[in-house]
Amino acid sequence: MSENPWITDEDELQDAEETAWAALSPYVRRVEHLVGFDDMDIEDPTFGEDGAVSLLIHPSWTGPTAEQSVHLTMSSDDVLSVQAGGTLTAQAMAGQLDPASLDSRQLAGLTPELASDAPLGISSVEAGALILGVDATTMQQAIDSLRPGMAAARAAYAQASQAADAPITIYTTPHCMGCEMTRRQLDKAGVDYQVIDLTTRPDLVAQFRGEGLTSAPIVESPDGERTAGFRPDRIKAMVSAATSPTPAAAPTPPTAETAPHASQPATGHRRGAAL
């Protein structure tokens, strides 16, 4: 699992990682359709305390070994770096490798085209293409396809990390009057909440549409119930639950209208924006 400075609970950490993978997976599927990448494994993303996100790509027949892999790392300011292989690959790219000094195990673990003591004069992308057995153009296409996915995964991971401390979640879209009105009411009541911009989460947009939630804001209460559109009645109920000094009454059995994750039609005040 990733090291996370914000999450200490193992279940919450697993939830955050699953959320990040859900955001990344549509981009991974695009890469898997590129020539040669159907035989590649893309490991789950890992996250650093500095806000960086990393991916490991390797041929499925080798496993994630030091030299037979390509690392993609996106920094917190969206700078993407490519590291092909490990120490031996770096030495080969610089013309500093002495194949005669390597034992049979090291040679077997090094991509044959890289086992040279002559300066290769190739980039990390080209070296990565050799390692994965694809052409350099396809390698660059894969990197370009994964770049926005890594940004989406990082955003999803950060949002899931914050969700551990936020009892209410508001999913918003740009220029959404109902979103702003919902936030104002919660701010006025002094209730904590987190905001997730749905333009960064196409996976959630598809999920919500499938649940019949088609307008923003989508507001999720601590018990997992979601409603769509500006709903003063629901906001009032959540504020009351969040500020009540006494334990809430036992929940009534869910019905088709109040079941968790079910679409909640607006009644009277619907100033949401279509998803």
Score class of each variant (00 low, 15 high):
Asp9Pro: 14
Pro265Ser: 02
Asp223Val: 07
Leu146Met: 11
Val79Thr: 15
Leu186Thr: 13
Val191Gly: 10
Ala127Trp: 06
Ala273Phe: 02
Leu213His: 11
Gly133Cys: 03
His71Ala: 11
Asn4Met: 14
Gly63Arg: 14
Ala142Glu: 05
Thr169Met: 08
Ala52Glu: 13
Asp38Asn: 05
Gly95Asn: 04
Arg154Gly: 01
Arg154Ile: 01
Ala115Trp: 05
Gly121Pro: 02
Trp61Pro: 00
Asp203Ser: 05
Ala262Lys: 13
Met74Gln: 14
Pro119Leu: 07
Ala216Val: 07
Thr255Tyr: 08
Ala248Met: 04
Asp192His: 14
Gly109Tyr: 12
Gly190Tyr: 04
Gly36Val: 14
His58Ile: 11
Gly190Phe: 05
Asp44Leu: 08
Gln194Thr: 15
Glu113Arg: 08
Thr252Arg: 14
Leu130Arg: 12
Thr243Cys: 02
Asp187Met: 11
Thr246Lys: 06
Ala129Leu: 01
Asp78Tyr: 02
Gly224Arg: 00
Met139Lys: 06
Ile196Cys: 00
Tyr27Asn: 02
Asp11Val: 13
Glu43His: 09
Asp192Val: 12
Gln91His: 06
Pro119Thr: 04
Leu88Cys: 07
Gln140Trp: 03
Pro251Ser: 06
Ser123Thr: 12
Arg154Met: 03
Ala108Val: 11
Ser124Cys: 06
Ala156Arg: 14
Leu34Gly: 03
Pro119Trp: 00
Gln162Glu: 15
Gly109Thr: 12
Ala216Lys: 00
Trp21Ser: 09
Ala237Cys: 09
Ala237Val: 03
Gln96Ser: 12
Ile143Lys: 07
Met177His: 09
Asp187Phe: 08
Ile235Thr: 03
Ser161Pro: 00
Ser123Lys: 04
Trp21Met: 14
Ala241Ser: 05
Glu211Met: 10
Glu180Tyr: 07
Pro253Lys: 05
Gln83Glu: 06
Val134Leu: 01
Phe208Asn: 05
Ile196His: 05
Pro174His: 10
Met177Trp: 03
His269Ser: 11
Asp38Ile: 05
Ile7Val: 15
Ser263Lys: 06
Leu186Lys: 13
Cys179Ala: 05
Asp15Gly: 04
Ala153Cys: 09
Ala129Val: 12
Ser215Leu: 00
Thr246Tyr: 09
Ser145Tyr: 07
Ala237Ile: 05
Gly210His: 07
Ala228His: 07
Ala152Val: 11
Leu110Trp: 12
Val134Glu: 00
His261Phe: 10
Ser116Pro: 09
Thr255Trp: 06
Asp41Ser: 14
Leu24Asp: 03
Val205Ala: 05
Leu132Ala: 04
Ala160Lys: 09
Ala228Trp: 08
Phe230Met: 01
Thr8Tyr: 12
Ala66Ile: 15
Arg183Lys: 15
Lys188Val: 11
Arg154Cys: 09
Ala273Gln: 12
Ala94Gly: 00
Thr8Arg: 15
Arg184Gly: 08
Ala266His: 08
Arg184Ser: 08
Pro59Tyr: 03
Ala256Tyr: 08
Ile122Thr: 06
Ser101Met: 14
Ala100Gly: 12
Thr169Arg: 12
Leu146Ile: 14
Gln96Glu: 09
Asp9Lys: 15
Glu180Phe: 01
Thr255Ile: 06
Thr73Ile: 13
Glu17Phe: 09
Gly36Asp: 10
Ala259Cys: 15
Leu146Val: 13
Ser124Leu: 02
Asp117Asn: 13
Ser25Leu: 11
Val79Ser: 14
Ala189Gly: 13
Thr173Ala: 01
Gly36Ala: 00
Pro254Met: 04
